[in-house]
Design a protein around this nucleic acid. Sequence first.
DNA 1: AAATGTGAAGACGTTCACAGCG
DNA 2: CGCTGTGAACGTCTTCACATTT
Lengths: 287, 287
Amino acid sequence: MSQHRPVGTPGRVGAVPALPDLPEATVARLPEYLRALHNLAETGHDTVSSEELATAAGVNSAKLRKDLSQLGSYGTRGVGYDVALLIDQIEFVLGLTQCRAVALVGVGNLGHALAGYAGFAGRGFRIAALFDADPARLGEVINGLVVRHIDEFPQVAAEESIAIGVIATPATAAQGVADQLVAAGVTSILNFAPCVLVVPDGVDVRKVDLAIELQILSFHEHRKAALTGLPATAGSGLAPAGAGRATSNGSSPAGLTALPGGLAATGTTEAAPTGTLRSTNAEAVGS
Amino acid sequence: MSQHRPVGTPGRVGAVPALPDLPEATVARLPEYLRALHNLAETGHDTVSSEELATAAGVNSAKLRKDLSQLGSYGTRGVGYDVALLIDQIEFVLGLTQCRAVALVGVGNLGHALAGYAGFAGRGFRIAALFDADPARLGEVINGLVVRHIDEFPQVAAEESIAIGVIATPATAAQGVADQLVAAGVTSILNFAPCVLVVPDGVDVRKVDLAIELQILSFHEHRKAALTGLPATAGSGLAPAGAGRATSNGSSPAGLTALPGGLAATGTTEAAPTGTLRSTNAEAVGS
DNA sequence: AAATGTGAAGACGTTCACAGCG
DNA sequence: CGCTGTGAACGTCTTCACATTT
């Protein structure tokens, strides 16, 4: 709480400003604010109020203000935030002032799509190299990049200054790949394989597991079905204007449902949690 | 809290077990436990201790025990948990006893990969239909499914009992698609488009944004670079066996970094915990 | 008057440590 | 004795409400 830096006179001297250590929850939302800000900038807005920006980013305004205040941000009371300035601030904090080179390992179904994903480019990242272990895939060209053997990684990583790796291999190969990446100096990994990665301290791992996301939704479906009793279709209202309420979620008593027998269902593996958003419900229509 | 159901005698009679309303954080971890349990089951384990399962799932044992106790789970003191039983329990709670039909909208780069993703099948989900708005893509067959026009959604949704939709369209189209899905009775949406969706109450939305994940990693890269002072590559130790420590994360003094334009921020840096998983460091090698 | 920045309160989540059971 | 289950302590995140500033 009391732990602020001596902001006495703001960034005065030459090399003063370091990175404030932001709460993780805040860090996870900054990219969202950034995206919203870029949208606003393109729409010709010069300033935004916390209310407007919060709505655009899908959070409430108090949270947004607190988040921005963490970076010692510069809003003007009575006016709002300067869009361009905020963009610079956030991009700086996120380390996006330089385009970062990332390596993608595993060019299967998903990896292929990631390699071709246009969304990375405009957001500060460049896929600098593709790797796989399968001899059959080596040499293949995707989006202008040749697929190389994973053993070439150390060399390429050094050449391209790669510090971030994306793993899109099968689960069985993921840990081995992670070890190779870490050994070659990678310090951040985005893991799409449905498994837990063990890495040394100082290496950050984030995980994206598609099946897990669906399973979480499944839980809520299950819950909603139990509450309403009727799993029917029901064409509810559209989103536009005053959205209608659907399930109340509070302290209502849970519904009952029959238990499975001695079944042994399907599935096999999955993955981890996400620090992402949850359901939103405001009144304004999106775009 | 304290809100459990009378679990007096376990899942005995016919319709006893209701859904406790679990903390979201717990729900988000259950799929991870489930995956670990399936792995254990395949390896011939009949029981697991909280310690073992926790390690396999990448969490600490106290958290795991608390999570499992929420579902009134059945561990045996002095022994551990029955693997098969726990699997059933968790699958039941997550609503995975039935295979759920999901619709995928947007068969572009990413959507294409999702349509072909094998990981869903074994995990309780079936992609039941594909949609797009682009006439050029209609009729295309992916993985045995024909791409249909989004306007056919209501009809197909009714036929296939679809309650979960996956949006993999460009951001500009996403809100419109979401409205269509909701109007047709969809109550859960997994959104891959980089935008905020506005939906009525009672509809759950989860978002997966690949660029955001990378941006979060970028932040940590930026921070680590500021701490070490040297953004060089540096091949650290391998992960296998006794993992080596990389960055010490404690109270090391913060490094300074030059600011862009006329910004000014200050402060000390420090390591922060994550809501989700973070770097792990145990000694055992993964698989 | 309008909107930011922030203490303080509250909700939520995690970790500790041990009682209690097998 | 080993391991689960859980009360209590602790820490983090969110929300409220208002003093402060332009």
